[in-house]
């Protein structure tokens, strides 16, 4: 018995049942996905093999397959790790310190604020906010234009503001709630770093902290804070309030509750958020460009600086980029398990 041609064609284009696709559609879907897979992987592959090429292999036009088109060589790796040695390791260590410290600090501070915004009701008087801005502007004016020493001016302004807020401030009526605070925190992310980096540069110059890890850590913590608050808020809001109240009655303080109940239960969110912040801090370029010049130079600076020396030396550059990608991928793989396990706990919580 022969199947008529029309039926065959139709079978190619119709699904067998509700959950599967027509064979032709399946082919198209796979083709598209695989082509994007190539788009993603090929540049990384090229990068990887270039790090094992000799200059002659690069300059003679494209060679694609190691061992067949060219013989892999470790010369670039040796150069970066042995001959440059400390010149590579110092920025690398710098990056590790800055990225990890700022991630931990940022996630901690951000998680504090996110939790507080979920569970505690705030009322901030509009009048006090306006007064604070006026005091701040006044202080800046006094410091910049009248040359007052900044620690004195800041201290005087703080004292004056506290006095104001506790006396006149009490009579203000209109107040802002948690949503307004959240909006303000998140809206800070719209600020382009280039707007704030000049004063921050001057500030660190005054404090003598320019080109130090501390300066970079503090700045990175600040610029990534809005993201942490934004993401962690949703995770914390999903934790049943009963658990916290129960702990409260059992005798736990807010801080105890935060560290023994809320943080462990927020672990999947914490892992995902930390990974994102780590990536952002590890790859940050603009602020490092301004704040770190030599001693605290980070890896993106080192990579970017490759251009200036003796023309593009692709082999060295590839090594640097590969060793920059590696720790992030490893961390992601490590956290992946955490994220998955945490999610499982969350999904069937009692």
């Amino acid at each position: 018995m022969t199947i008529p041609e029309r039926t065959l064609l139709r079978r190619l284009f119709t699904a067998q049942d509700l959950t599967s696709m027509a064979p032709a559609a399946k082919v198209v879907v796979y083709a598209l996905l695989l082509s994007w897979l190539m788009v993603v992987l090929f540049p990384l592959y090229w990068l990887f093999i270039t790090s094992f090429k000799l200059p002659v292999h690069v300059n003679d036009g494209p060679d694609f397959l190691p061992f067949i088109d060219f013989k892999p060589s470790g010369h670039a790796w040796r150069y970066i790790f042995v001959e440059l040695g400390n010149d590579t390791l110092r920025p690398y260590l710098s990056s590790v310190i800055v990225a990890s410290c700022s991630t931990v600090l940022c996630v901690l501070i951000g998680a504090f604020a996110a939790y507080a915004l979920v569970r505690i009701q705030y009322r901030v008087k509009v009048g006090n906010v306006a007064a604070f801005l006026l005091f701040l502007a006044g202080t800046v004016y006094v410091i910049v234009n009248l040359g007052a020493p900044w620690p004195v001016a800041a201290a005087v302004a703080s004292v004056l503001f506290v006095l104001f807020a506790t006396s006149v401030g009490r009579s203000f009526q209109r107040s802002l709630g948690n949503d307004d605070i959240l909006f303000w925190i998140i809206s800070n992310r719209i600020l382009p770093p280039v707007v704030v980096v000049l004063p921050v540069y001057l500030m660190f110059q005054r404090l003598g902290l320019l080109d130090t890890h501390v300066a970079l850590i503090a700045t990175y913590t600040a610029i990534n804070l809005p993201i942490v608050v934004w993401l962690m808020r949703d995770f914390f809001a999903g934790i049943p309030v009963d658990l916290e109240e129960s702990a409260q009655i059992d005798g736990a303080s807010r801080f105890r509750i935060f560290f023994t109940i809320v943080l462990p239960l927020g672990r999947p969110g914490l892992a995902a958020t930390s990974l994102l912040i780590l990536i952002l801090a590890w790859n940050e370029y603009l602020l490092a460009l301004f704040i770190s010049t030599a001693d605290a130079q980070t890896m993106p600076m080192l990579v970017a600086a490759q251009n200036a020396t003796r023309g593009p030396q692709w082999w060295y550059m590839s090594v640097l980029i590969v060793i920059m990608i590696a720790p992030i991928v490893l961390t992601a793989a490590m956290l992946q398990r955490h994220i998955a396990r945490g999610l499982m706990v969350g999904a069937i919580k009692g």
């Binding site: 009963d242 009655i249 736990a252 109940i261």
Partner: peptide
């Protein structure tokens, strides 16, 4: 609450997962 020395059983049991 922590200084009241009371114990509470919640409708949801509030067990720490």
């Amino acid at each position: 609450p922590k200084y009241r020395n009371v114990a509470m059983v919640f409708q949801s049991y509030a067990l720490y997962p």
